[in-house]
Design a protein around this nucleic acid. Structure first.
Lengths: 163, 163
DNA sequence: TCCTAAATAGTAATGAATATCAGATAGTAA
DNA sequence: TTACTATCTGATATTCATTACTATTTAGGA
């Protein structure tokens, strides 16, 4: 399951899926079409509602499974990670986060370039800004060292918990 | 409940709470102490385990309620928001997010300054980087217009869903 | 000390996200 | 085309983080 990271126009999604060694089912194609046609960053439920208009028998579980598969293949991204629980941070001074997509651990970092960032005007007109923060996602060294390919269905295994 | 945003050394937390019109209970003080003593960005469960060493009868619900209260008062922040479900994003090109902490809606934005950011070396040595993204949190204009103070227990009301 | 709103403990409920498994399907080879 | 087989799907059950409920206790002012 090689990490293909092309922005797939739905045309060749079937090819990409096959090249990744998974089947190009109608459910998968429709789920991708539904997602790619939205600017709303929909959740699984919203995608489910949309897809069901064309495939009335599709199940919510298939939608979840497919979206997580797309995630694993790098065909889409997600705002928060699967299995990610709420973590709290007492540090109110400006800082940023390194988040491991496998173990979920978070590490702070700071950098002058990041502190110098100004909130763009586009955001000002969007609403009332509370905070701005950079998140870097990846795999911490420890996780990266372990079995290279992420075989699990979801991205975060929460077994090894903080502290 | 005025938004006091001082970084409270646990000494005056009691004062801050009272000034905010809520009671300074031992549970609240201990929960804050537990959180502020950690660099791990712990979740509610981890904080619960720690606090229970000193207050064996504390309940997990109290921990959750207290942390959400701290969030609302701006005394702590959270990595992801309460009630936030997984949202998917088909856009693989570099972009950033405006997230409304009240309705949960997400809007993309781009900005040359943000695109010019380079992954700092500190992050390179941390592990294998997959992506870097800026998140701006706040209230979208629509939500900001409504009843000013956030009265809800949790920060996101998920009733009004995407699309 | 007494009083009362607010907070807590204990527990039940909720709901997003996963797992299980029997039956259906895609893709291949003949 | 047909048959074959690993992969997928749909339906359902389950898990588990998070939130709600309620009787009881407590903080903090009178």
């Amino acid at each position: 399951m090689p990490p293909l990271k092309l922005p797939p126009d739905s045309l060749d999604l079937a090819q990409i899926l096959k090249a990744s060694g998974v089947k190009a089912t109608v459910q998968r194609l429709e789920i991708y079409r539904e997602l790619s046609g939205s600017m709303q960053h929909p959740d699984a439920e919203a995608i489910y509602r949309g897809v069901r208009r064309r495939i009335p028998t599709v199940s919510l579980d298939t939608v979840y499974r497919t979206l997580l598969l797309f995630l694993k293949l790098g065909l889409v991204s997600s705002l928060r990670l699967p299995h990610e629980r709420i973590r709290f941070d007492p540090n109110l001074t400006p800082h940023h986060h390194l988040v491991c997509t496998r173990c979920g651990r978070v590490q702070d970092f700071t950098h002058p370039d990041f502190d110098a960032l100004k909130v763009p005007e586009a955001a000002q007109s969007w609403g009332v800004i509370e905070k701005m923060q950079v998140e870097i996602r990846g795999q911490c060294e420890r996780c990266a060292r372990q079995t290279k390919p992420g075989r699990s269905r979801s991205l975060i295994q929460t077994k090894e918990e903080p502290k």
